[in-house]
Write a protein that binds this DNA or RNA. Sequence first.
DNA 1: GGGAAGATGTTCT
DNA 2: GAACATCTTCCCT
Length: 207
Amino acid sequence: MNLRPQPLPFSFYLQDTVSLARALLGQLLCRRTAEGLAAGIIVETEAYLSKDDPACHAARGMTRRNAPMFGPPGRAYVYFIYGNHYCFNVTSGPEGVGEAVLVRALQPLEGVELMRRRRGIALNLVNLANGPGKLCRALNIDTSLNGHDLREEPLWIATGGPAHFDVVSAPRIGISQAKEKLLRFYIKGNNYVSRRASIERNPGTGD
DNA sequence: GGGAAGATGTTCT
DNA sequence: GAACATCTTCCCT
């Protein structure tokens, strides 16, 4: 495949965090290492907000871990969790405001065999990157990329995904607070989403 | 310096 | 569906 992903411009990241979480769906997350290019379509995201959101890492102010959330938008915020896994976020909101979008699942598009090697076991396509820890493993993302500008190699976000699709909003996963907020977004009907909601709502329409 | 919780994945029942 | 591995970060003493 002659894939030449072009990075999204800085202006893309200037929208509010919920809008950004939705706008990131269908975009390409691209990762280049010495082993080659690996890329996938972002099919599931979650928004974490600075106001009225106790589940957000930035809810209690800036710490060493969450500092990238308070920096400029369009950067990587990577953290280690549960002793085993990394999670990849896109920073958002104006500088000084701690917000981010967690990327939860990818539809593998390029470098599938590379992803499979990194994941270690013989997996079908669906299970390569359908979870935040899985996609970090598949793309070899760790905290060395924390704060990285997502317009640049070796980790960037580009246009080139599907042209049209419906978006579903649902409760976020794995949190203990603010569980009721519908701040998870995914591409309706996509098989690479980590978990489908029992009721699939379209955001903003209330139905 | 210590303790508890955590934006998960895998395996087992 | 439930248990658990595993360890960093942060908050408290």
